[in-house]
Nucleic acid binder design. Structure first.
Lengths: 186, 186
DNA sequence: GATTTATGCGTACAAACGTACATAGTGCAA
DNA sequence: TTGCACTATGTACGTTTGTACGCATAAATC
């Protein structure tokens, strides 16, 4: 439907096709879940022929893994940014609150993708490195401002609170989050 | 392969077949994920004919939802038990530590199922009641011993810490958990 | 024992799947 | 312009999927 490809003499110069396929994969997973993610749906979403799938990626699982890797890298990058900006411990505390109450909760898409990732990793141990890599980066970002133990507890709390806020509309308020963070970092 | 059904005149008196199908569904989801869960695999796991699937359940999604409901009810029941047994606040605190470090971490199967559930609910909003019901029960159990706000924070921490412990072998130790719980319930 | 009713199941079917591969198209060297 | 090496694609194949449905069979009633 996005035209361009089906018209204009077909074959086009398309240097970042691979990248676009990966992004389309995340889009499909977000809407259909891993269980509904197929070569054909991704190809349609990325506006590329079906043959491109097996040409650029060894298998569907290979593609899904690369998509999830990209997802975690992007999130980790934003996460790191947020804590790099913080100058004081108090600003870092506020950043944690923001991550819990503002950032994740806003984008249902991102949370859905993360949950799909967790389930996927749980069932495909060979992809666990995607998770451990992500967690290591998050931990590192938090350890700019907090001790390793406190960083670990904050990381876990961010995880749990994000999920709960996603599942339950009136989960944890900004004030409540502020109090929790204060307790954990006291 | 489990015999019995294929021999002995076939049709058998089987009053809790429906229940067994639900349990088999959880088994299949735990191993194959929702994405690999099919009528045929469930039927084989439950040792019932394929026809039984559409006879007892309106659709595959209907069956999956019922299976997840059963899962959450069982977990909530155990959870409630643990906190009902606690007589003092300190015992309740220790119960939280146990939930984080002992209980979930032990059974990979259970954690996998929970993560599959999250992903499923995220993508099927009409099944969100399964989650909200579960969360309400957990909250209730915690509120036997803690204020609503503290209960909420403990619940979130349990969530996040369990997941992190599952993904990363050396996640949060028992001592670390004890300290965190102490901080949150101070 | 005969007849009826309700329950359960084997089987078939169209649709969708992952993947392989012959072939068509394209930029580049000469 | 021609030839070549390489990239990309359309298509076909064998499986597996969810679901529907006609028929077999057990239980109930007389």
């Amino acid at each position: 439907m996005t035209a361009d490809r089906s018209s204009s003499g077909n074959r086009r110069y398309d240097p970042d096709r691979k990248e676009r396929i990966i992004e389309a994969t995340l889009e499909v997973i977000a809407v259909q879940g891993v269980s509904g993610t197929t070569h054909r749906r991704i190809a349609e979403a990325a506006d590329v022929p079906l043959g491109s799938m097996t040409y650029h990626f060894a298998s569907l699982d290979d593609l899904i893994e690369q998509a999830f890797l990209k997802l975690t890298q992007e999130i980790a990058h934003h996460f790191d940014d947020a804590f790099r900006k913080a100058q004081t411990v108090d600003e870092a505390r506020e950043a944690v609150v923001e991550v819990i109450c503002g950032w994740f909760a806003v984008t249902e898409r991102k949370m859905t993708l993360i949950l799909e990732l967790y389930a996927y990793v749980a069932r495909n141990p060979q992809t666990r490195h995607v998770m451990t890599g992500w967690m290591a980066k998050s931990r590192q970002a938090l350890e700019r401002h907090f001790s390793p133990d406190v960083a670990a507890s904050l990381d876990a709390m961010i995880e749990g609170a994000s999920i709960h806020n996603f599942m339950h509309p009136d989960g944890i308020s900004r004030e409540a989050a502020r109090l929790i963070v204060a307790k954990l970092t006291a």
